[in-house]
């Protein structure tokens, strides 16, 4: 550090730092503040002008059954995918944690669908649900039924994303020191006890990351649903993000849509923060 003292580094540092930071500011920070203003107007998404309406949009949200339905759909989707994704990825990671022939390629098989775009996943599964499963087992598409559409989208999203949690859990499992298990065997612990007393507590950090990430991305869900159903049938799979989008493009009430977005981000921050705090408290230090 002393070497730096006799020359001025301010300009050099600033010119290294600013390109990225300015683009971030223009693309994210400025729109965020524009958004705070838009939420207080009746902008329709098309015209140049917009009128200030105070907090009317937020009062409308408070009384809107559509908003509550979208919020319910988002919560239902997020909770369902968080549970399904973590149970499935943990089970597969435990299975892949054993040495067997073809383990590498099996892991690749689970991870590969994660690399495909959501549009592709939705297209493939729409066809599987509608045509293939009906030919194989004579069942109707889950996506065409109001009661099963959200679980159907969960299946698509699982196929398209479970690989991420699998590799995170797998990394967690391989980092558990072997001598812990050996000591447990010496002490006469069974398979279940080893899992319960060593694997579970040692895996808590990975668990925190995976649960929080799945839940937050589940609440933000947009692309898979948009590509698979567009929010239908009816409004049965219209989640908050889709609702925001539709307020801009279909309902021509962008001001109101932006207010929904702001309410949503506050709920997201509070929920995510709370969950992390609860889960972090359960982690053990080694």
């Amino acid at each position: 550090m002393k070497a730096k003292a006799h020359r001025n580094t301010t300009l050099g540092n600033l010119t290294l730092f600013l390109p990225g930071f300015l683009i971030f500011a223009i693309a994210v920070v400025v729109p965020f503040f524009i958004g705070l203003r838009v939420a207080l107007t009746n902008w329709d998404g098309i015209s140049q002008t917009m009128d200030y309406v105070g907090f009317r949009n937020f009062r409308l949200i408070a009384g809107s059954s559509e908003f509550r339905a979208a919020l319910n759909n988002s919560l239902y989707f997020a909770i369902l995918i968080t549970v399904a994704n973590n149970v499935l990825s943990l089970a597969i990671a435990l299975g892949l944690n054993n040495a067997f022939k073809g383990r590498g390629i099996t892991r690749s098989a689970f991870f590969f669908p994660t690399c495909l775009s959501t549009v592709l996943a939705a297209f493939i599964w729409n066809f599987l649900f509608r045509d293939v499963f009906s030919e194989l087992w004579g069942v109707k598409s889950m996506l065409g039924n109001m009661d099963t559409v959200i679980p159907g989208i969960v299946i698509i999203a699982l196929w398209n994303s479970v690989g991420i949690n699998i590799v995170i859990y797998l990394a967690g499992l391989t980092s558990i020191p072997r001598d812990l298990y050996e000591a447990a065997i010496v002490d006469g612990a069974g398979a279940w006890q080893k899992f319960r007393k060593i694997t579970v507590p040692m895996l808590m950090p990975a668990f925190t990351v995976c649960v929080t990430m799945t839940l937050v991305s589940g609440l933000k869900e947009f692309a898979t649903t948009m590509a698979a159903t567009g929010g239908g049938p009816g409004h049965s799979s219209e989640m908050i993000s889709i609702n925001i989008y539709k307020n801009l493009y279909s309902y021509y009430q962008a001001g109101y849509g932006q207010a929904v977005a702001l309410v949503f981000v506050v709920l997201l921050a509070v929920g995510g923060g709370l969950l992390t705090r609860i889960l972090r408290g359960r982690e053990v230090d080694v």
Partner: peptide, 10 residues
């Protein structure tokens, strides 16, 4: 989603 509408406007 929070900057979707303002980005569109901007």
């Amino acid at each position: 989603q929070v900057i979707m509408i303002p980005v569109y406007r901007m």
